[in-house]
Amino acid sequence: MSGYIKNVVSKTAPHVGQINPTTVKKWTPILGLWGGAALFGVFTFTEHWPLFQQTFFQKIPYFGDYWVHTLDPEDSPQ
């Protein structure tokens, strides 16, 4: 008597809603690259924002000095 299939045995893969290891594996590089693109988009539109200049852009090696604005104290309106 060879074995025969009595009924379908199925397992449910671990998941959170629709998200399971397969979808995570598929979407990680896609969303990662879009995240990088979004980061450059944020950089483009905040290039003249002093907070971003002081926090990020001034720390770029070699080119960072472009965002360092030095003003002699006698020329400052304050």
């Binding site: 896609i30 690259l33 879009w34 990088g36 693109a37 450059f40 988009g41 950089f43 483009t44 290039e47 080119f63 472009y66």
Partner: peptide
């Protein structure tokens, strides 16, 4: 995504 990212990266560098 790479295309859009390189457009933004180029724009960021170019405006400087």
């Amino acid at each position: 995504s790479v295309f859009v990212g390189s457009v933004f990266a180029t724009a960021f560098a170019f405006q400087g």
